[in-house]
Nucleic acid binder design. Structure first.
Lengths: 111, 111
DNA sequence: AATTATTATCGTAATTATACGATAATATCA
DNA sequence: TGATATTATCGTATAATTACGATAATAATT
């Protein structure tokens, strides 16, 4: 019964958790860095750089795309990916909001 | 061969990924909210609030503790958890740093 | 000492994630 | 049209995650 009770939580919690999940693998963080570094939206270059098979990289790209953190368009036989800055900024804001709202409640030492 | 190639990535990437993983489930986000709301560091109260079994909540608490986001001390037969604000702030800073460093490189539209 | 309350751990099952090789799909180029 | 290059998808194996009930561990209380 893995990951079944998800719907019992709030939309915000689920949304933030989904974003965090997209960042929960070092390969995906590395991919985001590569996409930001390359001026053009590299595709197969990622496979060259990462220590992963092409199919695995493609899977990670798919997850980042599903999370909305990157966009991808077909460019001939190649695929062109790039960071969705809008979504990324939203995630950043959401996370900062969580942090500050938690902190506002209570920052005493405990136990 | 799930999650085997992790050591091929940088320490920073792994660290941030581990933090993100801790936040990648809505139950754990909910737990952090509860811990922040309660002035005292509630333990079993979390079980009452969440739609999860006691053992499942205990598992989530363990993961948050392993990630360093919360501290836990034994208080008689009860356990007392609280947010590790220092670690949380560090995570927040790391994530903001990733975001701003990505953004600094390139924010053009692409594809 | 026995009971009670609370929490952690164990055992288990189902789902998801991760990774790879092989293959299919797509479009460019000869 | 045929060959080539690039990427996505399929199939598969392994490992991790999530969830629960049952049980063990811990300490306060009677």
């Amino acid at each position: 019964m893995a990951s079944a009770k998800t719907e019992e939580f709030t939309q915000k919690e689920q949304h933030l958790a989904a974003f965090a999940k997209a960042l929960s693998h070092p390969a995906r963080i590395a991919i985001l860095k590569i996409l930001a570094q390359q001026n053009a939206c590299i595709c197969g270059k990622i496979v060259e750089v990462l220590p992963l098979a092409q199919s695995t990289v493609s899977q990670h790209l798919k997850e980042l795309k599903n999370a909305g953190l990157i966009d991808g368009t077909v460019d001939g036989p190649k695929s062109c990916y790039c960071i969705n800055w809008k979504a990324f900024a939203k995630f950043n804001a959401e996370f900062n909001s969580l942090f500050s709202s938690l902190k506002m409640q209570n920052e005493k030492a405990c136990c």
